[in-house]
Write a protein that binds this DNA or RNA. Structure first.
Lengths: 106, 106
DNA sequence: AAGTTAGGTGACCAAAAGGTCACATGTCAA
DNA sequence: TTGACATGTGACCTTTTGGTCACCTAACTT
């Protein structure tokens, strides 16, 4: 399994994306802390975190018996760069920003 | 199935990512043209293109009996924006660009 | 030391995904 | 209009994935 394969497979599951959202909102969370936010047993959450970690999307830091999790944005940026070149980026960001602006107006 | 679920599931398969790579290199390809570049039967490729289309990652344009495929970068940019805020973006792009520069030197 | 808390492992099962094929529709060209 | 070409559909099978559980180790607390 290649590196990028691990990243995309990791992102394919909604629970794992939720975990990334939680870490994006506030970093440095432990397994038990994350478990409380997800409708799943601890084992399921641990398994998902392992997948995210092996993909390099989450970095961990041990502190005593706790394992703290942090979001690593680099693989996400690499996905972006794979299919959006510098020229296209200008148009796409403008388009997306416009979309956000229009949604905020309602 | 939600919209973003469709996008991430579509990106999870290596063949589908290869198809996006091919369309990124040159847009407006037909099924048979793409089929020739992939080690798989026509049926498999068609199935993958359908998944990409339903995810909004590929847009099609019919021309007679041919179906031409185009890459749509918007969903990719939305993935980026989900986990990389404007502040972080500056650091991450700098880091990634540096990585590319170092790799080019070798 | 004993109890509690945080996390890890391997087996297991049900559900989903990838790939192929027989068959079918619509379009072009002579 | 006949034949070749481009693509679509539904059934089928195999592999992968998601989730849970019984059981385990390591660390903090008193």
């Amino acid at each position: 399994m290649t590196d990028d394969d691990r990243v995309f497979k990791a992102l394919a599951d909604p629970t794992r994306r939720l975990l990334l959202d939680l870490l994006f909102a506030r970093e440095g969370r432990s397994l038990s802390e994350l478990e409380a936010e997800v409708e799943m047993t601890r084992f399921g959450v641990a398994k998902h975190l392992k997948v995210l970690e092996e993909a390099g999307l989450v970095v961990v830091h041990r502190s005593g018996r706790e394992k703290l999790h942090f979001l690593n944005p680099v693989p996400i940026r690499l996905i972006h760069d794979r299919w959006i070149d510098k020229y296209t980026e200008r148009h796409v960001t403008a388009l997306v920003d416009l979309k956000y602006a229009l949604e905020d107006e309602t």
